[in-house]
Every structure is written in structure tokens, then in C-alpha cells.
């Protein structure tokens, strides 16, 4: 599964520009589903037919990034975030653009004092991207206003841990793909959506469940962590302790029926798990849950450190156990 994770995380597709990642996912999953569709907004919806309850899995395929707002006379590029990008993460890091152009990020400062001030308060107003161009004309051959950009890092294997950009939420995509690959049979009618534009407001998930009208939704996404030096003291999430079953975050309270089902399945099959109460953030699950008359929805989360940076770290065992948990859940006969 590491090959799959490598392929997914190294594909560059920020929110609104999901074409590339959609192709990669489709190629991976096509042999394992009965039918698929790309909806009007660009969500990839796959279907593995069954006679039982309709269950919708969700993982979002976009990643955070930025968009070009202005290119100056000297060829320096100004950007705005697409999704939750901390500008401090970008400084002096390599970045890439849709066109394949690469560059790095610099910061303004006319005096040493001002530079020191700016370092303390890095904003999108005092940083710029340098692609080595000497003029606007030269820059515009590689990068245009409105073009999207983002992180460019490769997957690194760090013992049991994996580090890459866009683990949020390519690791969720990997889990859903692997689950469907391993799901030889299910008494349920299984759909999975690889959703667009989660990072800019759960856009894909606002419509994905509308046509399907599932009986239950399960989003697969990353969650925070509390196991690093002076880490969040009210966050009881530890990498390697198992996939997290969400109770709540800022955007939703997971439906009790789904939480109970996931916990029961984990316990019956001796899959390690942890309960998740996240003090911030939200997932596609929040939108799926309030679709139409309401859809009981839960979230299986992969504990992930340094979310929304170039160096997101997950534990491979949590990933494998998430696949196991979903597989056994889908195999269950539902009332």
C-alpha cells in the first residue's frame, strides 16, 4: 500500500484543480468497482453494487495550496492561500505550480530590524514566490495570474511512520481505495466519493450525497495529534494507537449510531482504535450528515502530525488498521 500512498501524495492537485489526482485514483480503482461517474462539480463517485443498505464512503482528493494574484515587473509572484495554509510554512521552501514551474518563497525587509519584525509576523502580504525569473515577461512564460501552486515534497518512509505533503487527505483516498480493493464481497450497496474542494469549505461533499441518498455516510480524513512535546493538552490522539473514531469536531457531532457501529466492529475484530474529540476543524462528514432529511454519518480519522504542511506524518499501522476497520464495517449486515 506504500506505493499507492506514494503515488497519491506525490500527485499535485490543490482544491479546484483535481483533474490529475482524479485520473490517478480512477486508474487505481476502476478494476474494483462496477461503475463510476464524475459529477458536475468534479467529484469522482464509484459504486460497488450490493443488495443491502447504501453506504457512502468519502475521502477528499484536493490538497491545500495557493493561487497567483499578481506578478511584478521584476518577475516576483504574489500569492493567496487556497485552504488553510500558514504562510510561515512556505518561507524558503520549494513550491510548484500547475505548469510544472518551481520556485521558493522569500520575504520582504528593507532593514535588519524590519526583516526581524517580518519573520515574527509572516503574512501573505510580506512574502513572495521567486521562480528565478528576471522580468514579468519571463515569469509569465511559466506562471500566470490565477494559476494554482503548492507544496512539492516526496514521500519519506521513517520507520513505521510515513511523511509527505497532502497526507490530508490522500491518505484517506488510499484507505478508501485499498478498502474497496480488499472488499471481495459485501451485503451492502457501497459507494465511495473522492471529493473536490474540501479544503475551501467542504464543497464537493455539499452535493455528493444528494443524488446517492445513502443510509449511512463514513468520511475518512486526517485528524490532529497531542503526542508531541508540549502538544495540545486537550487532544488525546496518539500516532500508532489506531485509527480514530470521531465523536466531534468544530463542524459536526458524529451520529451515535455510526460511532457505536465502528466501535463495535473494531472491538469484535480486535482492531486498535481511539476515540477522537477534535477541538477544531471539520470534514466532509459534516455536509454529508445534513444532506436532505439527514444521513447518519461518522468519520474514521487517521492521526496525522503537522497537518497542512509539507511534512505531514502518519503511522502506517493506523492506516492498515483503518482499512481493516472499514472493510469489516462494510461486511456487516445492517438493519
Amino acid at each position: 500500500m506504500k506505493e499507492l500512498i506514494k503515488k497519491l501524495t506525490e500527485t499535485f492537485s490543490p482544491s479546484g484543480r483535481e483533474e490529475k489526482i482524479r485520473e490517478v485514483i480512477l486508474e487505481e480503482i476502476k478494476p474494483y468497482v462496477d461503475e463510476y461517474e464524475v459529477d458536475k462539480l468534479g467529484n469522482l463517485i464509484v459504486h460497488k453494487k450490493g443488495n443491502g443498505k447504501k453506504i457512502l464512503l468519502d475521502a477528499h482528493m484536493d490538497e491545500v495550496g495557493f493561487v497567483v494574484t499578481y506578478i511584478d515587473d521584476k518577475g516576483f509572484i504574489r500569492i493567496e492561500p487556497v485552504g488553510g495554509v500558514n504562510p510561515a510554512n512556505l518561507l524558503y521552501k520549494r513550491v510548484q505550480f500547475e505548469s510544472g514551474a518551481v520556485g521558493t518563497v522569500g520575504i520582504e525587509g528593507e532593514t535588519v530590524k524590519q526583516l526581524q519584525e517580518n519573520y515574527k509576523n509572516i503574512t501573505f502580504d510580506n512574502i513572495y514566490v521567486d521562480i528565478g525569473a528576471k522580468s514579468r515577461e519571463e515569469a509569465e512564460k511559466r506562471v500566470k495570474r490565477g494559476m494554482f501552486g503548492g507544496y512539492t515534497t516526496n514521500l519519506e518512509v521513517l520507520g513505521d511512520r510515513l511523511m509527505a505533503k497532502s497526507m490530508d487527505d490522500r491518505i484517506g483516498c488510499a484507505v478508501v481505495i485499498q478498502t474497496l480493493k480488499e472488499l471481495d464481497s459485501s451485503p451492502n450497496d457501497v459507494y465511495a466519493v473522492f471529493a473536490i474542494q474540501e479544503e475551501v469549505g467542504l464543497i464537493g461533499a455539499t452535493v455528493s450525497a444528494f443524488g446517492i441518498e445513502p443510509d449511512m455516510g463514513i468520511a475518512v480524513d486526517v485528524t490532529g495529534w497531542g503526542d508531541t512535546p508540549k502538544g495540545m493538552k486537550r487532544l488525546a490522539i496518539t500516532l500508532g494507537d489506531g485509527p480514530a473514531i470521531k465523536v466531534k469536531d468544530r463542524y459536526m457531532i458524529a451520529s451515535k449510531s455510526v460511532v457505536d457501529l465502528l466501535v463495535k466492529t473494531a472491538e469484535e475484530n480486535e482492531i486498535p482504535y481511539q476515540m477522537e474529540v477534535l477541538l477544531y476543524g471539520g470534514t466532509d462528514g459534516a455536509m454529508i450528515q445534513k444532506t436532505k432529511k439527514g444521513i447518519p454519518t461518522g468519520v474514521v480519522s487517521i492521526p496525522c502530525r503537522y497537518v497542512h504542511t509539507q511534512s505531514e506524518i502518519v503511522d502506517y499501522n493506523d492506516v492498515l488498521n483503518a482499512v481493516k476497520l472499514l472493510k469489516f464495517t462494510l461486511k456487516k449486515e445492517m438493519k
Binding site: M252, A286, Q289, K290, T291, K292, K293, G294
Partner: peptide, 9 residues
Amino acid sequence: PGARTATYE
């Protein structure tokens, strides 16, 4: 979300 979904119905 409770009122929203009830109202849809």
C-alpha cells in the same frame, strides 16, 4: 443540522 434536515423533510 437538526432543524435543517427536519425542514427539508
